[in-house]
């Protein structure tokens, strides 16, 4: 048998006193949307930067053609574009920083290799 009280209770939960400050509420949401977009853009830029560093490292370390660097930069930029589709902006930024860290490490190793060969 359907519990009509539970049905009425759900309806009671749907009822709510009207907000007196809807416009302020809306402004705050808009600000959060803008901030989240800026965070994601930043995460994308960091990933692209990381890819560029990694490309520089690869070129320096193995003396391969600049074509590889192009490929890596393109891949990094693409990852940067796709990143906003997964996780929260905080997680994306964290991923971006990790990738940048790896890129810097690669660049350092590449530079070391170049200096040792010189």
């Amino acid at each position: 048998m359907t519990d009509t009280f539970e049905t009425r209770l759900a309806a009671m939960f749907d009822e709510a006193p009207e907000l007196s400050d809807t416009s302020d509420f809306l402004i705050r949401i808009e600000a959060k949307i803008d901030r989240a977009r800026a965070d994601r853009r930043m995460a994308g830029l960091i990933v692209a930067g990381a890819a560029a560093f990694a490309a520089a490292a690869a070129v320096g370390a193995s003396d391969v053609s600049l074509g590889l660097a192009d490929v890596l930069i393109t891949a990094g930029t693409r990852v940067g574009e796709l990143l906003p589709m997964v996780g929260t902006s905080g997680q994306q930024t964290m991923i971006g920083w990790v990738l940048l860290g790896l890129g810097l490490l690669g660049a350092g190793l590449g530079l070391k290799q170049v200096m040792e060969e010189a």
Binding site: E15, A16, P17, E18, L19, T22, F25, L26, I29, E30
Partner: peptide, 19 residues
């Protein structure tokens, strides 16, 4: 269209906050 989303917020903000 953010204005359309704004209208959705206006209609539903009270019940979400109340919950």
């Amino acid at each position: 269209e953010r204005r359309a989303f704004g209208e959705l917020v206006r209609r539903n903000a009270s019940s979400v906050r109340a919950l």
